[in-house]
Structures are given as C-alpha cells and as structure tokens.
Design a protein around this nucleic acid. Structure first.
Length: 213
DNA sequence: GGCCAGGACACCA
DNA sequence: TGGTGTCATGGC
C-alpha cells in the first residue's frame, strides 16, 4: 500500500530532488544540516534567502558561524523567521559538530540519540539531517505526513512521532533514496491540500481517501 | 488583513 | 501525556 501511494505521487509530481549534492558550499552536507534547522516551521523560499545571506557574507562554514557576532548571525538568518532562536540553534549545532573534531567525524560517529540532545534539534530535524545529509535510513515524519496518512485512514489515532516513523520504516524497504523521495513527495502533496478540507479531486490519492468528497 | 510555512520547547493541568 | 502559547519573516 505504501509503495503504491509512493508510485502515484511520483507519477503525478515527478522526482522532487531535494538537496541535490552538486554545487553549493562544500561539503554540501553541511549546508543541508543548516537548511534542516532553518526550515523549521518556515517557508523554504525564506530558508534559501537565509542560506544565501550566509554564503555572501562568508559565514556559512562551521568556523565562521562560531566567529560571527550574535547580532550579525541573527541578521543573516532573519529572512527565515524566528531569527533569534535560529541563530542560537545554528551556533549550538555547530559547536556540537565541531566537538567531534569536524564534520566528517561527526558524520560518521553521531547517533540519533546524541543529535536529539542538541538544543533546538527535535525528531523531525534530527531525522532530516540523518537522512538528507548523512545518508542514514531514517524516515522523516512531519505535519503533512500525519495529516495526509491520517486522512487516508492508515495511521491509528494517537500515534506519536516515533510510532509513525516505525510504521513507515517497518513497511518500506530500507532504501535511502526511497525515504528521501517519499518524504519530499508527501510535502509536495501536503502543500497542495487545504488544511481542514478533504483531499481535493485533483489529488493523486483521491480514490484511496476515506474523506473523498 | 489573515493564514500559513519542510518545528521545538517551555509551561501547565 | 496532552493541550496551548511563543517565537517571526515573507508570500499569497
């Protein structure tokens, strides 16, 4: 069932290609981590502006994020919203990464549990970093995932984040690229849906939705 | 002018 | 454990 839904979404929307690994700051994975934090409850367009600001100011590397003044960092990430909180989060996360001795070591050694200990990194952000930046097989659950799959009647009521994550990970083959694409497709579908309305007629999942109008 | 976006966290009962 | 307020910019 989950694979069938995946195929429908892929056929309708095409490959989303989130975080292509070409171009951008090197290592590319570092920028992915920053984006995962900056995108919290925020439109992606605004995140791109913040990342662009960091690049232009030469403040995107781990060392330079730590060197940047508080006000300066806040100003650079301002377009992504919650800029005071996010400036702190970027600093704390950078500090955490450098504690491993550098990004490469962090990338090899960090555990999901350790990542969740960092202030400002919740389950979704941790899994986004693990999946999209570090290539680990963690399925990312977000508000859209809950909304869409609850409406499809596939998620039991009251399932928490871990419960929903297990649901997907147990029913899908452990395939990094499948996880990456699936989450991106769910977000794309979610963006097209109205918050409190049934799935629309144009929705590729229309026939499966128990709330079909 | 209101609603929402690729959440996390503190606080309360 | 579950509900609610807070943080904030920019697009539509």
């Amino acid at each position: 069932m989950l694979l069938e839904i995946y195929q429908r979404l892929l056929d309708s929307f095409g490959s989303q290609e989130w975080w292509p690994m070409e171009g951008g700051f090197e290592p590319r994975e570092w920028e992915v981590c920053l984006g995962a934090i900056l995108t919290q409850n925020t439109n992606w367009k605004n995140v791109e502006r913040a990342l662009e600001n960091l690049k232009k100011a030469g403040k995107i590397s781990p060392m330079n994020i730590l060197k940047a003044g508080k006000g300066e960092l806040e100003g650079l990430v301002r377009p992504s919203g919650y800029y005071k909180q996010k400036a702190v989060k970027l600093r704390d996360f950078t500090d955490f990464v450098l504690g491993f001795g550098g990004f490469r070591q962090f990338s090899k050694k960090v555990s999901r549990e350790a990542l969740l200990e960092v202030r400002g990194i919740g389950p979704e952000t941790a899994d986004s970093i693990l999946l999209y930046a570090l290539g680990r097989s963690c399925f990312v659950v977000d508000a859209y995932t809950r909304r869409v799959f609850s409406r499809l009647g596939l998620l039991k009521d009251g399932l928490d984040y871990e419960g929903i994550r297990r649901f997907f990970e147990e029913k899908l083959p452990k395939d990094i690229n499948l996880y990456k694409e699936y989450h991106a497709l769910i977000v794309e579908l979610g963006k097209r849906l109205c918050r409190n309305k049934p799935l629309c007629r144009e929705c590729p999942l229309d026939k499966q939705c128990k709330f079909r109008d």
